[in-house]
Computed example of a mutant assay.
Amino acid sequence: MKICIFGAGAIGGYMAAKLAKAGAEVSIVARGPHLAAIQSRGLTLIEENAAPVTVQVRASAAAADLGPQDYVIVTLKAHSVPPVVGAMQPLIGPNTTVVSGVNGVPWWYFHKHGGALEGTRLASVDPGDAQWNGFGPDRVLGCVVYPAAEVSEPGTIRHIEGNRFSLGEPDGSKSDRAVALSQALTAAGLKAPVRPRLRDEIWVKLWGNLSFNPISALTHATLDVLCTDPGTRAVARRMMVEAQEVAEKLGVTFPIDVDRRIDGGAAVGAHRTSMLQDLLADRPMEIDALVTSVQELGKLTQTATPTLDAVQALVALRGRVAGLYG
């Protein structure tokens, strides 16, 4: 089984290191000093209560160097994927599965969804249908990413917490390809359940991202503060209630209520959300996949999202002023 991680930063690097350590045939596409360090010294993984481990993985900036794969696992930020679909084509053979380990509403959301919106394409996350046409929705296997990790220095991944990568077919089936990848990830010491209702899990994670991320980017507050301050908690709650109405119209079931989800965010502690981290580091902000996509779904389901609309307008302008969005 040949597995390529496309975008082997923190999360992709963590997955690649675990797979390589377990003896899997894994390669990575990366760039810059991180790639140079991996090519010269190997990929180092630092986990709590364990000695650092360095593994040798085949690494390149060019997909053509690696050739067709059985699985291509995409771990880029959502807005970074459409521009590189063309560059990924050398990795894709007739039986390649593309695993979408990307935050937010996925581009394939309405593939095999059923109902009136079956086959709908989402411009906010796949402008110009780049992924829909470039990969094809039949290739996709969904993935919800839970671990937290960071690139502590080029070539070195520090694992912070979590080891679950939930997998799911768009039609909810327990396919051979999903089971095979689950087994490979499990053999590497990761949790990789195959879920029949992956979209429910996508929404539970998105619930926090669509509210906590933009509020933190606007206020610079950490999770513990924005989830307990009465004002920002109320704004987050209204955004989440609006999003829940959208999701439930799409057939999603939420296993927890809004307040428990917010309390869960508070329990994480003094953590800067990914959007705030990107803003502070002058990196492009992941606004469309996390926020604008829910607006788009609101329009498709004829659901009013006034609080989400207001916050999206504010964080989009914040991103444009910083030169990190649009």
Results as ranks from 00 to 15, higher is better:
R272I: 02
R272M: 01
R272F: 00
R272A: 02
T273H: 04
T273S: 08
S274A: 05
S274D: 02
S274P: 01
M275A: 05
M275Q: 09
M275I: 14
M275Y: 06
L276A: 13
L276M: 08
L276N: 11
Q277T: 02
Q277S: 04
Q277K: 02
D278V: 09
D278S: 06
D278N: 06
L279G: 05
L279Q: 04
L279R: 03
L280F: 06
L280R: 12
L280S: 13
L280C: 10
L280Q: 14
A281P: 02
A281E: 02
A281K: 02
A281F: 07
D282Y: 09
D282L: 08
D282I: 10
D282G: 08
D282W: 07
D282H: 15
R283H: 13
R283I: 15
P284C: 08
P284K: 07
P284Y: 10
P284D: 00
P284T: 07
P284W: 08
P284F: 08
P284Q: 01
P284I: 07
M285N: 14
M285A: 15
E286G: 12
E286M: 13
E286N: 12
I287L: 05
I287G: 06
I287T: 08
I287M: 00
I287D: 05
D288C: 03
D288K: 02
D288I: 08
A289V: 11
A289I: 09
A289D: 05
L290P: 04
L290F: 01
L290M: 02
L290Q: 00
L290S: 00
V291A: 15
V291Y: 08
V291R: 10
T292K: 07
T292C: 06
T292G: 03
S293I: 04
S293P: 05
S293Q: 04
S293D: 00
S293N: 06
S293M: 07
S293H: 00
V294S: 13
V294Q: 09
Q295L: 11
Q295S: 04
E296A: 01
E296D: 01
E296V: 05
E296H: 01
E296Q: 03
L297Q: 03
L297N: 00
L297S: 02
L297E: 06
L297D: 00
G298F: 14
G298D: 10
G298K: 10
K299S: 03
K299G: 06
K299I: 03
K299R: 10
K299T: 05
L300S: 08
L300I: 12
L300Y: 12
L300Q: 03
T301S: 11
T301G: 12
T301F: 15
Q302K: 14
Q302S: 14
T303D: 07
A304P: 09
A304F: 14
A304L: 15
A304N: 09
A304V: 08
T305W: 13
T305G: 14
T305C: 13
T305L: 11
P306K: 11
P306D: 13
P306E: 10
P306G: 13
T307R: 04
T307S: 09
T307G: 04
L308I: 14
